[in-house]
């Protein structure tokens, strides 16, 4: 006996289990990053001098990274749309590009971090750098998590397309929702940490 509504939508809610599950998970993620944003506001309003992000951080690199994530978000949703059009090759291509862009994000982030350390800027230097490293660090962990999952469905997990295409398409939609959320967090992190 199988659990109902793993692929098909339940008539009265119009949802399948995984989609509702991932939205609930994202709701809790909102609160997780919400806690950190709240801490940021609390710390910033609590002191007289709060440095401008650009004093420590590189806006051009972060702009590049923003472009990487936005583009990866659109390729992610395209890979799902390709599955909807029964075009598995295009799915492979778009998911592959998504992975490359995500890795590009990590590479840029790596150079950003090492250049900070090189200049003697550490989390302990002041609370601005502390919250910068904490928030972007947690975000990077989410990016890495996303890469692992996307890679799984790009390579070994893609076999499911042969056996259960409906379920596979749903899974890509779910992964996509998560990936867009990671993008969404960055869209707010970018101005808050780099520009203000």
């Amino acid at each position: 006996m199988d659990i109902p509504y793993t692929v098909k939508n339940r008539p009265d809610t119009g949802l399948y289990n995984g989609k509702l599950g991932v939205w609930l998970f994202l709701a809790s993620e909102v609160m997780l990053f919400g806690g950190l944003f709240s801490a940021y506001i609390f710390l910033r309003t609590g002191v007289d001098n709060w440095p401008m992000g650009a004093e420590y951080l590189s806006v051009p690199l972060a702009t590049l990274n923003t472009m990487f994530l936005i583009t990866s978000s659109v390729t992610m949703v395209m890979s799902w749309a390709s599955l909807k059009l029964n075009d598995f090759k295009k799915f492979k291509m778009y998911a592959g590009i998504t992975l490359l862009l995500a890795l590009g994000f990590l590479v840029v982030k790596y150079f950003e971090y090492t250049s900070k350390f090189h200049h003697g800027y550490f989390p302990s230097t002041n609370n601005f750098l502390g919250i910068y490293f904490t928030m972007t660090g947690l975000h990077v962990l989410h990016v890495i998590g996303g890469i692992v999952v996307i890679f799984f469905y790009w390579m070994p997990g893609a076999k499911m397309w042969e056996t259960d295409p409906g379920r596979f398409t749903n899974r890509i939609e779910i992964v996509g929702l998560y990936w867009h959320f990671v993008d969404l967090v960055w869209i707010f992190l970018f101005p808050v940490l780099y520009l203000l």
């Binding site: 809790s28 609160m31 997780l32 806690g35």
Partner: peptide, 12 residues
């Protein structure tokens, strides 16, 4: 779901 994550943030 909604109350625990801020403590996780605080824990971090």
């Amino acid at each position: 779901l909604l109350a625990f994550p801020p403590l996780e943030a605080a824990g971090v």
